[in-house]
Amino acid sequence: MEYHNVLTTCPYCGTGCALHLQVLDHQLVGVLPAKNHPISQGGLCIKGWNAHAFVNHKDRLQTPLVRKGGKLVTATWDEALALIAEKLSALKAESGPDSIGVFASAKCTNEENYLIQKFARAVIGTNNVDHCARL
C-alpha cells in the first residue's frame, strides 16, 4: 500500500500548468491540480484534468508502426529511425533541403523544440520550421 503524488507539468499546451499525478502502488489513478503552484494556481482545463487517461489507454501506441504493403505493422525503433533517415536523405538529395519541413509541437518541452529547429537548420539545412500553435 503506497500512495503519493508526482508533481509534473501538463503535457498538452505551452501554458505549463502544474498537476499532480496520483500514484497508488505504481499505478496512475488520477490527477490533482497543484494549488500553490505559481502558474496554474490550482486550476486546470479539461485536458489537464484528463491527463492521466491516455497513459495506460489501450489505444496508445507503444511501438513505431511502419507501413508495409499498405498495412501498418509494428516495428522496432531502430528500424523506424533508419527508414526515416533513409527517406529524408533521399528527398534532400533529390529535391534539395527546402523540400523538407519540420513541425514542432506545443506538447514538447522548450529543449525538445530547440533541438528540432536545430535539426532542421543544421542537419537538413532548411528554414521550414513551423508549429502547431501558429494556426
Binding site: 503506497e2 500512495y3 503519493h4 503524488n5 502544474a18 499532480h20 490533482l32 500553490n36
Partner: peptide, 21 residues
Amino acid sequence: VDGVIGLKTGPAGIVAPYLFK
C-alpha cells in the same frame, strides 16, 4: 495503523496528499 493520510510538501514547496507509512 497501516498508514496516515496527510499533506506533504513536495518539490518547490508544492503541497500534495500523501500516505505516511
